[in-house]
Design a protein around this nucleic acid. Structure first.
Lengths: 255, 255
DNA sequence: GTCACTATGTGCGTTAGCGTACATAGCATC
DNA sequence: GATGCTATGTACGCTAACGCACATAGTGAC
């Protein structure tokens, strides 16, 4: 797609020092012993908007742990139409199919928001998983979060308006970003939601008039998050609560 | 719901003799050693249409392995509207949340087609799972099948017509039944699909005029399966192929 | 056979979202 | 400051599905 537009200046190279792996929830929640085995093999990568981290049906070489990047799991139909199935940010991991045994998925993993992620060679993850320790249990719980998110996406697609779904999408996004600003054109949002671009324009216009967001040319800022949540369907909070139940914040987690 | 209508004569009590556990794919695929540990604790149960095997949010006591019954995973919204998330027949199990660590799900498990199933006390399953042997790998693969099915449901809900979705639903059902006959009113199908009953009437009428199905008062017979598959969207075959990839039939499986 | 009930058929008007086409407006380049 | 590109706005007809209201037709109970 249009991935080059953001490549821009190679500002500065992210390092484990300024982007500690623990900024990812899963990596953070691992016991020290596991961290010691895994962290040396983590490779930091800069993901650009539109990068395809893994193509549908192709074998996963790496698993990805986003930090400030967001990766969408997208299903692309035979006729080219698409729909977002789930979103992965610093709360999760791309590549659960690896330890589930499938090695690949029917969905594509696309970078929805540029940023930094750690990646780990697939076999390393499997090795650690096969120790049947903390990582296994953590990833299983995360899998259930993913399952819940997908289920709710199905429900939302069935019953809710574009406006409500846009609200959900915005909330999912800003939850995974450091600020309230989403860099994304309406065209791309439409691709994610699997609707027309004009539909997104309408819905976004309405949210803007309601004073919930401000946007201009691919830059959406949420100005009234509370109102955004009220305008959203229940799907957002259902998934959020279930996620918190399944993966409660560690008490002394680093902010 | 209207579960009593089928209770009828308690014909004859199903036994492990006339309903061998191996008729369930997952149970069948276990190595003998595991079977020996698990099978003695399997309890055969007759499930009636509408039985709620597990309520959303409540702790799973048992996991269920359907034989000729079908169980739907259904999400029920705050306003009462619902949508089917996935279907489980003799190809699977209800209760993956148990070993994933969540103990409960946001969706309800409802019997969509009356029949026999085996159930296993949750702790027994967890104990065997925690041996980290064949069962673990089998269930993980099955979880990915479930994940795929949910993802495809989301896509289908977004992009396909009621008619196409009805086709998918019928195919999913007869694949899990011994004959080509589905006992289900249009009203209940509408609940599963999350659409109006009239919408199902329209679609079913069209399929009938096309010579694909015959139906009368809660009894749908598929007479031209090939045409049904052609009329269906890609969603059915995508999931089917992926299931077969993830869980290939054992070579010497009993028919 | 009558009755009551449930399942299905049908016919409105309404709406959300689609497909298409085109108009504007912001932004970068030269 | 003209040009060209991309993002957004808007309008129009169309269709699928909705909500509602009611008509018909099987089916079992008596």
């Amino acid at each position: 797609m249009d991935r080059q537009q953001l490549k821009a200046v190679p500002e500065y190279v992210p390092t484990k020092a300024n982007y500690p792996p623990e900024y990812n929830r899963l990596l953070n929640d691992l016991p020290d012993e596991v961290k010691e085995r895994i962290f040396p093999h983590l490779e930091i990568v800069s993901l650009e908007l539109g990068d395809v981290v893994c193509e549908a049906g192709s074998k996963l070489r790496y698993v990805y742990f986003p930090l400030d990047s967001i990766i969408s799991l997208l299903y692309v139909m035979e006729n080219g139409a698409s729909a977002e199935i789930a979103v992965v940010g610093n709360d999760g991991m791309v590549g659960v199919a690896l330890f589930m045994g499938g090695e690949s998925t029917t969905s594509r993993a696309v970078v929805q928001s540029a940023g930094v992620a750690y990646r780990l060679f697939g076999q390393r993850l499997k090795d650690e998983f096969n120790r049947h320790g903390a990582l296994l249990h953590l990833l299983l719980r995360y899998s259930q979060v993913l399952l819940t998110q997908m289920a709710q996406t199905a429900v939302c697609n069935r019953h809710h308006s574009i406006e409500q779904q846009l609200c959900r999408w915005l909330l999912l996004s800003i939850d995974r970003l450091s600020d309230e600003r989403v860099m994304m054109t309406q065209e791309l949002i439409a691709n994610m939601l699997g609707v027309r671009r004009e539909g997104v324009t309408d819905a976004a216009g309405k949210l803007q008039r309601m004073g919930i967001i401000n946007y201009s040319r691919g830059n959406i800022e949420v100005v009234d998050r509370k109102l955004l949540e009220q305008t959203c369907c229940e799907c957002y909070s259902v998934v959020k609560q279930e996620s918190e139940r399944l993966m409660p914040l560690k008490t002394c987690t680093k902010k």
